[in-house]
């Protein structure tokens, strides 16, 4: 079966005053229908830029898709006019998106209901009353009590968790095939985090929807994702499944991430990855992780290709090159 979303060799560049920033380099991955893909990595690794490339929400005249294709339902989104009708139908209609900061994600001067109604009516012919009815149903579905009353309130009357629920209701209002969640729980309390993740998982199952879940937290991915990609400095380091990543991480960077992760019952000390993420304009040549990698070799000065490890895992690391392995 053809995947819902197929990204091939995507490179997105930012043209900044300080120079060219290769925010996303040669990224490829797929999301099947009904699948949840986790996108993991530290901040500045290109997760959000990848999402914004798909949505065509890159800052105009600064962010540009330099190369590659983004096939959504067979349409190459990368070739569409970001402000054109076709793209606007996809954006919000077939792909919904929620963001990291629920406190600032909603417009403070329009009611919650009005904002959801606006989203519904952008992608359908429903009347205002019908759209409001649907908005109230959606608010009810995402777990907001007294939805009719709440729909008439402004965002400042909502807590952070409630706002994120309202955002989810809005993102799902046009029954999209794909939901992009960009760090949806980073800014909320831990208790709320679990609720929001559960809600996303439920809604996904209910609607047979695909989810692209962006997070810096491997634990979050373990809970909800089917498969995941690990990104570092704009590149995909590893593609794997949620089941395998904890037991058999392939890429040294993924291992490093896991070892720096606190887990209940663990005896050993946390081991942070040495060094820090280099600044955006000081990318190392070759493998971007080499300067921080325990296993770095001479060949790591050259960018490694992606090596297939088995059916559902691959890693961009010279350790998986046959010649290198035999020589070592």
């Amino acid at each position: 079966m053809k995947p819902l979303l197929e990204i091939n060799n995507l490179s997105t560049h930012y043209h900044l005053e300080q120079g060219l920033l290769r925010a996303v380099e040669n990224v490829s991955f797929q999301i099947a229908k009904g699948e949840t893909l986790g996108v993991v990595g530290e901040s500045g690794c290109g997760k959000s830029v990848t999402a914004r490339s798909i949505m065509r929400l890159l800052p105009p005249r600064i962010g540009r898709i330099a190369e590659g294709e983004i096939l959504f339902n067979g349409v190459d989104v990368a070739r569409l006019d970001p402000r054109g009708t076709e793209m606007r139908d996809i954006r919000g209609g077939q792909i919904g998106m929620i963001f990291q900061e629920p406190m600032t994600s909603l417009n403070p001067v329009h009611t919650i209901g009005a904002q959801i109604v606006e989203a519904i009516r952008t992608h359908s012919d429903l009347s205002k009353a019908e759209a409001m009815e649907k908005a109230v149903m959606l608010l009810d579905r995402v777990g907001i009590n007294q939805p009719e009353q709440r729909a008439r309130q402004y965002p400042h009357a909502f807590s952070g968790g409630m706002r994120q629920r309202a955002m989810i209701a809005m993102a799902l209002s046009s029954d999209p095939a794909l939901l992009i969640a960009d760090e949806p729980t980073t800014a909320v309390d831990v208790t709320v985090e679990a609720q929001i993740l559960d809600l996303i998982a439920e809604l996904k199952a209910e609607r047979d929807m695909s989810v692209m879940l962006i997070t810096h937290d491997l634990n979050v991915v373990g809970e909800v994702a089917d498969r995941l990609i690990v990104m570092y400095l704009g590149r995909v380091m590893e593609t794997t499944t949620a089941a395998k990543v904890f037991d058999a991480p392939a890429h040294p960077y993924t291992k490093g991430l896991l070892e720096s992760l606190p887990a209940i019952g663990r005896r050993s000390r946390l081991k942070p990855i040495k060094g820090s993420v280099p600044g955006p304009h000081e990318r190392p040549p070759g493998c971007p992780f080499a300067p921080r990698c325990d296993k770095a070799m001479a060949i790591c000065q050259t960018q490694p290709p992606t090596f297939r490890i088995d059916d559902d895992t691959s890693a961009a690391c010279w350790l998986y090159d046959d010649e290198v392995r035999h020589d070592g």
Binding site: M55, L57, R83, R88, D89, I90, R91, G92, G93, G96, M97, F99, E101, T104, S105, L106, N107, P108, H110, E118, A119, T122, H123, M167, M170, A171, S174
Partner: peptide, 21 residues
């Protein structure tokens, strides 16, 4: 502001995003 990006992510016309939001 984030809510301006939210408005764009809804698929609104750029004019609506600028004026209404």
């Amino acid at each position: 502001q984030q809510f301006v990006e939210t408005a764009r992510a809804k698929g609104l016309k750029e004019r609506t995003v600028i004026y209404k939001h």
